[in-house]
Nucleic acid binder design. Structure first.
Lengths: 258, 258
DNA sequence: GAATTGTAGATTGTCAACAATATTCTGTTG
DNA sequence: CAACAGAATATTGTTGACAATCTACAATTC
């Protein structure tokens, strides 16, 4: 209900922002935060009422989110928060790795000393957070670090893609950057990236950036294996044929992907 | 006007396809074909009437196209067919090259003999078209060839991205694959791709696929230089400071592309 | 008792009207 | 004649209502 307040307020402040954008942001947030779970349907009327708007903007926002890959629409039935299979997740990591490499290379080749210094500062701060064992701070700084690179590359399409894929990844709701070893590894990889950028080594930056994300993929793989194992062990419940662990089709079987 | 007929007809045939999808396809076609020029505004009411629907579905379709990068919306003003700067075009080619490489590698590593054989057939047919100097046929086969690869890779997100980026590229309306030399070069590069896929050489396929698209980018660059040269020669009009040639104001001087 | 058909409720699909905003044209003034 | 103010017009933003469709449940039939 306070969401409604939020929207109305920001609406009053700046009338030039169309409702559909507010609604899109609100829906995106709900989805990414898990307030609307994966596989769940978005009820237009309910959401419209909750947000204090009519259904039109909600529908438009949903279309937007559909193209971005956060939801999928089924005719005459509704839009569902997308549910990612492990394969989908791995594919997303691959794509993100490639684009990250592209962005890092661009930053390095651009050779902007100010940006390089800024990244070094970020890296130093992350080092301190790591030493202090402050995972939350490290996590935030990590986000900013990569955002800054994406921005500094001056490649708008690639940046948008990178951000968008990042949101999609979040749909899996698997925390991958946890534990002191993971942090340490991340830190080392960041060092490589910063080094290459400072040195103006485009190819090196590409490789370092891609490798960094690839190791994230590796941790995801480990985590998936571990989850699958735990699932089997703790319940042994009718886990439908391994490799088909997608489940929760919106309705018929339009859902199963794998 | 016959578009209206088309839509109504297909609507009557299969009622399960929401209007917004028909409208989206129609708009996309209009844009890609150039019926609505780059920089032009999409008039909701006019389009709605032309297509025989109300403005709701048109608006939804526009949002969809916006996320795909074919149009950009300005608040209280309208949505405009996106106008690509040369930089945008080059960035699109880079992204497409990376993703193409990723797809080719996946196909090669999948090692599906039937797909490999199919691609060899395509390639042979393209060779015949090239010998016959039949550019149109070569062009179509080229499309199918790459579509087939994208499909066979079984990477849905990457494929969607590849297709989407391809549409964006078309916004530039620059024919890059023309002339016997270009065809011959394309054919040679295809040969490398097919070779690597047949051999199951993932890394080789990636490199070959990326290189193929990179040479497309090179041709684009040449073409841009040539256009710029011609433009300067014939008019010498106030070309705003090179490096700032991005522009893309939807309103004022929407018109010049470089 | 199981399967099937019919009906009621809920939800999405579409539309047309109204409100808000931007653009254009015209008349006035310096 | 140029520049500006203001009205007229065109266009987008938003809404509530209606139609079409689907889901779930109950009654009926074999």
């Amino acid at each position: 209900m306070d969401l409604k307040h939020d929207i109305r307020e920001s609406l009053a402040r700046r009338r030039q922002r169309p409702l559909v954008l507010e609604v899109r942001d609100a829906l995106e947030e709900m989805i990414l935060v898990g307030e609307i779970a994966a596989g769940e349907r978005l009820n237009e009327a309910a959401l419209a009422e909750q947000l204090g708007v009519s259904r039109g903007p909600v529908r438009e926002a949903a279309r937007s989110l559909e193209r971005e890959g956060l939801v999928e629409a089924v005719a005459n039935e509704g839009v569902y928060v997308r549910r990612l299979s492990p394969q989908d997740g791995l594919e997303l990591y691959d794509l993100r790795a490639m684009i990250a490499g592209y962005l890092c290379a661009a930053v390095a080749e651009r050779g902007d000393a100010a940006v390089a210094a800024e990244l070094e500062d970020f890296h130093a701060a992350m080092g301190r957070a790591m030493e202090a064992g402050d995972e939350a701070t490290y996590f935030d700084l990590n986000l900013s670090f990569h955002d800054r690179i994406a921005e500094a590359a001056a490649l708008p399409r690639a940046r948008a893609l990178y951000v968008s894929l990042g949101k999609e990844v979040r749909l899996m709701r698997l925390k991958v950057l946890t534990g002191p070893e993971a942090l340490r590894q991340s830190y080392r990889e960041h060092a490589r990236i910063v080094e290459a950028i400072v040195a103006g080594d485009g190819e090196g930056a590409r490789v370092a950036g891609a490798a960094h994300h690839a190791s994230g993929k590796q941790r995801l793989l480990d985590r998936l294996r571990q989850e699958r194992g735990a699932c089997h062990a703790q319940a042994g419940h009718a886990d439908p044929a391994p490799g088909e662990g997608r489940a929760v089709e919106p309705k018929t079987d339009l859902g199963r992907i794998t």
